Amino acid sequence: MARLLVGVVALAAAFYVYALVDCLLFPRFRVRGLPKVAWVFVVILFPVVGGVLWFLVGRGRKRSARGPVYRTIGPDDDPEFLGGLRSDPVTEQQLRDLEQQLAEVEDDPDSKRTDNGRTER
């Protein structure tokens, strides 16, 4: 009988320490029911019952609605980024106008080349 009692006391002490450490290290925004400091006092004052209450009531789920959820996505998966892109940044008409302007500059006999490759009028 004494061995059983020693085993139960050792198990209760291990559970008490585990519950207390878990309560102290648990993120504040995921705690439910009471403020985190109050849960620490509940676990300390009522060792086994406080630990059971902590795990059943106070310990929040992995994804709490109150806490921030961070997810990194690449630009090719971001709808806002993709919506800002245009499929064809230069239209055919703009391209023809630019080619025509370039041809006019190259055909202009009054233009002189400078050392840096620009044309001067």
Rank of each mutant, 00 (worst) to 15 (best):
Met1Arg: 07
Gly60Asp: 00
Arg59Tyr: 00
Val48Gly: 11
Arg86Leu: 07
Glu120Ser: 10
Asp77Val: 13
Val8Phe: 06
Ser111His: 14
Met1Cys: 05
Pro79Val: 12
Ile73Glu: 15
Leu82Asn: 15
Thr91Ser: 15
Val43His: 01
Asp108Ser: 14
Asp76Val: 09
Phe46His: 09
Arg32Gln: 00
Arg118Gln: 10
Lys62Phe: 06
Ala13Lys: 04
Tyr16Lys: 08
Arg118Trp: 00
Tyr18Ser: 14
Gly84His: 09
Phe15Ile: 08
Leu34Glu: 00
Pro109Ile: 05
Glu104Trp: 11
Asp22Tyr: 09
Val40Tyr: 01
Phe26Arg: 11
Lys112Leu: 15
Gly33Val: 00
Val21Pro: 01
Leu25Arg: 10
Phe41Asp: 07
Ala38Lys: 09
Ala65Phe: 07
Gln93Phe: 08
Arg28Ser: 00
Arg96Leu: 08
Asn116Ser: 12
Lys112Thr: 12
Leu11Trp: 06
Leu4Lys: 01
Leu25Gly: 02
Gly33Cys: 01
Lys112Ser: 09
Pro79Met: 03
Arg113Gln: 13
Phe29His: 08
Ala38Pro: 02
Val69Leu: 10
Gly7Asn: 07
Val43Ser: 08
Ser64Trp: 00
Gly83Glu: 15
Thr114Ala: 04
Asp107Ala: 15
Pro47Lys: 14
Phe81Gly: 00
Thr119Phe: 11
Thr119His: 07
Leu11Asn: 13
Arg86Asn: 11
Arg96Asp: 00
Asp97Ile: 12
Leu102Glu: 03
Gly67Trp: 01
Gln93Arg: 15
Tyr18Trp: 11
Asp107Met: 15
Ala103Val: 12
Leu20Asn: 02
Gln101Asn: 14
Asp108Trp: 11
Pro109Tyr: 10
Asn116Val: 01
Leu20Val: 06
Pro109Ala: 12
Val52Trp: 11
Val69Phe: 10
Tyr16Ala: 08
Val31Ser: 00
Arg71Asp: 12
Arg59Ala: 01
Leu85His: 06
Val9Met: 13
Ala14Lys: 08
Phe15Leu: 12
Asp115Glu: 13
Tyr16Val: 01
Gly83Val: 11
Gly74Val: 14
Glu99Phe: 14
Ala13Leu: 13
Tyr18Met: 10
Leu11Glu: 13
Leu82Glu: 12
Asp76Tyr: 10
Gln93Met: 07
Arg32Asn: 02
Asp77Pro: 04
Arg113Met: 09
Gly117Ile: 06
Leu102Gly: 01
Ala103Asn: 10
Arg113Val: 10
Met1Tyr: 10
Ala13Met: 07
Thr72Gly: 05
Asp108Tyr: 05
Leu34Tyr: 01
Leu53Phe: 11
Asp88Tyr: 13
Leu53Pro: 04
Val48Arg: 07
Lys36Thr: 05
Val40His: 05
Ser111Thr: 11
Gly7Gln: 08
Gly60Asn: 00
Lys112Phe: 09
Tyr16Pro: 03
Ala65Arg: 02
Ser64Leu: 04
Val90Ile: 12
Thr72Gln: 13
Arg86His: 08
Leu20Pro: 07
Ser87Met: 03
Asp107Asn: 15
Trp54Tyr: 15
Glu99Ile: 14
Phe41Gln: 05
Thr72Ser: 13
Leu53Asn: 02
Ala13Ile: 04
Leu20Lys: 05
